[in-house]
């Protein structure tokens, strides 16, 4: 069966009921979607299926035949970050980073679908995503910034001051 991931077509050999998460991680070696629980509870495995955030751990690959899958690798690259990636970096919304891919894809879809900077609406949109590190405030700050259309100069910090070379820290 066929699947497109980040615009690249793939011919899938895993058994039809293999989870999309396992297909991505084990067959295609695309590892940004994480196995946090493999039972639908944490959101770390979230990918976009035809633009909609879905849990890849609960999705049998046969159910998405022919679909376009987007993972974080498909959003942007280190030298060309998508707005949501810039915002997460800028607002320190990733600590350990394990929940981050899923969070960003849900946030990206939220903004693409016209989501606003309203914090309650953002909480609703990200409600199925567990983050054990950040306490969520910085994640919501980041999503609100994207929804507002803030622009991020990569050399500026969240406080708006210019980053200086901190001798290896940066």
């Amino acid at each position: 069966m066929n699947l497109s991931v980040n615009g690249v077509p793939h011919n899938i050999e895993s058994a039809p009921l293999t989870s999309l998460l396992d297909v991505l991680r084990e067959e295609l070696q695309i590892t940004s979607a994480k196995a946090g629980c493999e039972q639908g509870g944490c959101g770390a495995c979230t990918v976009l299926i035809d633009g909609e955030p879905q849990r890849s751990c609960l999705t049998p690959v046969v159910a998405v035949e022919g679909a376009e899958i987007t993972t974080v690798e498909g959003l942007g690259t280190p030298n060309d970050l998508a707005p949501v990636q810039q915002a997460f970096t800028h607002h320190y919304a990733a600590q350990c980073g394990f929940c981050t891919s899923g969070m960003m894809l849900a946030a990206h879809a939220y903004v693409e679908h016209g989501g606003t900077e309203d914090r309650e609406a953002i909480q609703d949109a990200l409600g199925g995503h567990v983050c054990r590190c950040t306490g969520y405030v910085k994640i919501i700050d980041a999503v609100a910034a994207v929804a507002r259309g803030d622009s991020f100069d990569a050399t500026l910090t969240a406080a708006g001051t210019r980053m200086t070379n901190l001798g290896g820290v940066a």
């Binding site: 280190p78 970050l81 990636q85 320190y92 394990f98 910090t157 820290v169």
Partner: peptide, 22 residues
């Protein structure tokens, strides 16, 4: 110099691009 300053995380961009290798 780093105390009180906002410094970028050394792993921030790797996290945001899904490239951190756990």
């Amino acid at each position: 110099k780093a105390v009180g300053a906002r410094v970028p995380r050394y792993d921030g961009v790797a996290h945001a691009t899904g490239r951190t290798e756990f």
